[in-house]
Computed example of a mutant assay.
Amino acid sequence: MKKLILAVFILLSFQSFAQQTEQDAIKQTINTMFNAMRKGDSTMLRSTFAKGIAFHSVANKKDGTVTLEIENPDDFIKLIGTPHKGVYDERITFADIKIDGPLASVWAPYKFYLDDKYSHCGVDVFQLMKTADGWKIIYIVDTRRKGNCPE
């Protein structure tokens, strides 16, 4: 009986460790994306994305309607890599990470700064897939607002 309990404990410990290791790898991919934004490094940025990545933004219009805006990932990559004034600094908190085999979902409240000046906030939702080269971002959708920032 003691051997069975020990085996179950070891198995659960291993699963917990493996899950934490995958979460760390997912966080690293997302952190690399934001480091690339801060550095203005489009090559580093592109390395975090899978082919076919999709970008969307859920936008609140002044008239009260909510729309889904489709954004072009190549335009974003070009924006980051083109010399510009200021540092694009998006500061996130990893609120929730869910993993099912090669698929992961991340909920991350953020605040965006240009240099040290606050611009806006919202929530980023990332979908990632595990590839032979590690975790890659396949989808990003976000919200954006000036106030009432998530913590």
Results as ranks from 00 to 15, higher is better:
Met1Gly: 04
Lys3Glu: 15
Ile5Ala: 10
Ala7Ile: 15
Leu11Met: 15
Leu12Phe: 11
Leu12Lys: 07
Phe14Tyr: 11
Gln15Pro: 13
Gln15Val: 14
Ser16Cys: 13
Phe17Val: 14
Phe17Arg: 15
Ala18Gln: 10
Gln19Asp: 09
Gln19Met: 07
Gln19Gly: 04
Gln20Cys: 09
Gln20Arg: 10
Gln23Thr: 13
Gln23Asn: 10
Ile26Ala: 10
Gln28Thr: 14
Asn31His: 13
Thr32Lys: 10
Thr32Gly: 08
Asn35Gln: 12
Asn35Val: 12
Ala36Ser: 08
Ala36Gln: 06
Met37Ser: 07
Arg38Gly: 00
Gly40Arg: 06
Gly40Gln: 05
Asp41Leu: 00
Thr43Cys: 02
Met44Gly: 00
Arg46Glu: 02
Arg46Asn: 05
Thr48Met: 14
Thr48Glu: 10
Thr48Phe: 10
Phe49Ala: 13
Phe49Lys: 11
Ala50Arg: 11
Ser57Asn: 14
Val58Cys: 08
Val58His: 04
Lys62Glu: 11
Asp63Tyr: 11
Asp63Ala: 12
Gly64Thr: 09
Gly64Asn: 10
Thr65Pro: 15
Thr65Tyr: 14
Leu68Met: 13
Glu71Asn: 08
Glu71Pro: 05
Asp75Tyr: 15
Phe76Tyr: 10
Lys78His: 09
Leu79Thr: 11
Gly81Tyr: 06
Gly81Glu: 04
Thr82Gly: 02
Thr82Ser: 04
His84Pro: 05
Gly86Trp: 03
Glu90Gln: 00
Ile92Cys: 01
Asp96Thr: 06
Ile97Phe: 00
Lys98Ala: 07
Ile99Asp: 01
Ile99Asn: 02
Asp100Leu: 06
Gly101Tyr: 12
Leu103Lys: 02
Ser105Asp: 07
Ser105Gly: 09
Trp107Arg: 14
Ala108Phe: 13
Ala108His: 10
Pro109Lys: 03
Phe112Ser: 01
Tyr113Thr: 03
Lys117Cys: 02
Tyr118Glu: 00
His120Lys: 00
Gly122Phe: 07
Gln127Val: 07
Met129Lys: 14
Met129Gln: 12
Lys130Phe: 02
Ile137Leu: 06
Ile137Asp: 09
Ile137Cys: 06
Ile140Glu: 00
Arg145Pro: 01
Arg145Val: 03
Arg145Ser: 04
Gly147Val: 09
Gly147Ser: 14
Asn148Ala: 03
Asn148Thr: 05
Asn148Asp: 04
Cys149Trp: 04
Pro150Cys: 07
